[in-house]
Design a protein around this nucleic acid. Structure first.
Lengths: 338, 338
DNA sequence: CTGTTAGCGCCTTCAA
DNA sequence: TTGAAGGCGCTAACAG
């Protein structure tokens, strides 16, 4: 038998109070006399009453929901961040509305309009490919509709209008490159993506800095994120660089692992002949053989922090600090000497 | 300057029609004269008007949103399914409200109440650990509130009240076990999870069937999904099974890969001494060395299909068919002989 | 084909 | 501390 959802009115009737009182016990309990409150809560419990989210949203102009915008759920870093967001959101009883971005700017613009229409209380935006146009659009939305926006693991280094949570990719790139140099490596390659990712550019800058300081020759090699493609690329790379190549910093664990596989199949030894560092500390890193040394990024924590900052901003506590950096660390496993 | 969101009323004024007409051009365009419609649409465009989702939901009692309930975003199968759901949902302009389940039954029950309160038009539920209690609760929600529910990659073999999209895990388990038998393997182990997952039980049944048919001895070995733990387990397993062990069917790619790594470190050759099959065809399978043979599960398609079925049910097209099976396939790579 | 009108369920002043 | 009443922005009959 179809149960009709209890309304605030039913609760009020049964508790013998006005619906205003019911509303108050839910939203401003301190303004209701203790006995009345308890009586009302009891009825709410009995009826399994939950306020209709639409009616509440319409009347209060708050939704207790936030929009989560991500480029691609299948990337494990994104999924883990969303997990962190979900954990934190749960604490505040916030709902998450998920938007998976398409590549087209138009689509994204359309989605943002939807987000505004959905009355989301805030936006968590994560997209490591963010460009000028997207950044400005986000900022416009924020200003036009005064809706808080937090960028999670999404860096746009040329401006700082939007609150950002990330790690220091530049420093991380620098550090691991430096370690390879200290190992005595002379021909260190950076393996990065052909597509333009802001965070990868930063890793690259860090790499270049270290290489430059050591007076070595920089080698940037761009490949695809796709395994079947980059395997072919690595064959070419080997032809070109040959046995001189003795160190690699890859912008993703998966790229590092497929590079290692490619080299081993050519008879090169890791880390005897070549040392390799990856980025992220995904499961790939521990499942690979030899197990991958890499930068560990606290990706879940980034999600948690971003959500908690968003909550603060929604509550009106806007800090002056725009950039929040979480600590990374270097994990030494079996593809480096240390 | 804070733009105040345009309302239907603003649009009506400016287009010099009643608000009912604006509503119609949005929801029943065929009921509006072409010229009027175009005039209205033009104004909508100019004002960047998007109907307030709350008001619309409240008035229409439809939300054009669905609840997506998942156990854990960090599992790549879950993330990929959500991706499929997002792709399909976009076609219908549906929003996704994401709920990450906790282990506690109470929590889940609370979440379902929230889903009902949120007026979601339907529920996509995925949880391969589903138990009796959870299944019955879902069914109760469905009946009490007549809200469509689809189980995606979530099997509860003892009942069939809820529409389900999955693959035939039993058959898949049977097939790969049979292949190992045909290779001449005699001591084939099933590596499964210590925790109870419905789908893993089905894989196990398929394995047992094939083993039984061949008059072989069944060996079920339960381990953790956690890499650091199962490595230790595999050492124990090796002590116990020793060199007789010559075939493995693992319920997850990651388990298969860490098993392989463990055996290789002990000097065993894959697939010369041991053949190994995994399940899922994740990236781990192609990044491992040797590359893992496994069952390919069309996980994105399961998400797509589930969402499309849900949309159908929401639209009132409830088919009698309760169970929808998608085809799986066997991927032969380098850890088996074929 | 278009306009008028009555809610949808809740929050929030304003009075009492 | 409580109740009455208006309205949030939109949809959906019902008239015309």
């Amino acid at each position: 038998m179809a149960k009709t959802k209890a309304t605030i009115y039913n609760v009020a009737m049964r508790a013998d109070v006005s619906l205003a009182t019911v509303s108050r016990t839910l939203n401003n309990p301190e303004k209701v006399k203790k006995e009345t409150r308890e009586k009302v809560l009891k009825v709410i419990e009995e009826l399994g009453y939950k306020p209709n989210a639409f009616a509440r949203g319409l009347a209060s102009r708050r939704s207790t929901s936030v929009a989560v915008m991500v480029p691609d759920m299948t990337r494990s870093s994104i999924a883990e961040m969303v997990n962190g967001i979900a954990i934190e959101a749960r604490k505040y009883n916030y709902s998450l509305i998920l938007y998976v971005l398409k590549d087209e700017y138009e689509e994204e613009s359309e989605m943002l309009k939807e987000v505004v229409a959905s009355q989301a209380d805030g936006i968590l935006y994560m997209n490591d490919e963010i460009n000028e146009q997207q950044y400005q659009m986000l900022n416009k939305i924020k200003e036009d509709y005064t809706i808080p926006i937090i960028l999670a693991n999404t860096l746009y280094p040329y401006e700082n209008k939007l609150t950002t949570v990330s790690i220091d990719y530049y420093k991380a790139g620098y550090e691991i490159t430096k370690e390879l140099i200290e190992e005595g490596r002379k021909n260190i390659y950076m393996l990065t993506t052909a597509r333009k990712y802001m965070v990868n550019d930063l890793k690259e800058s860090g790499y270049l800095k270290a290489i430059d300081e050591a007076n070595l020759e920089p080698h940037i090699y761009r490949t695809s994120g796709d395994i079947s493609i980059n395997t072919v690329h690595f064959d070419e790379l080997y032809l070109e660089a040959g046995k001189k190549l003795d160190g690699v910093v890859a912008v993703r664990d998966s790229i590092a692992v497929s590079f290692i596989n490619s080299m081993i199949s050519k008879g090169r030894k890791v880390p005897k002949d070549i040392s390799v560092f990856g980025f992220q500390n995904t499961k790939y890193a521990s499942l690979s053989r030899p197990r991958l040394s890499c930068i560990d990024i606290p990706i879940t924590d980034i999600g948690v922090k971003a959500m908690s900052l968003l909550k603060q901003e929604i509550d009106g506590n806007i800090s002056k600090q725009k950039y929040f950096e979480l600590p990374h660390s270097i994990i030494h496993r079996d593809t480096t000497k240390k």
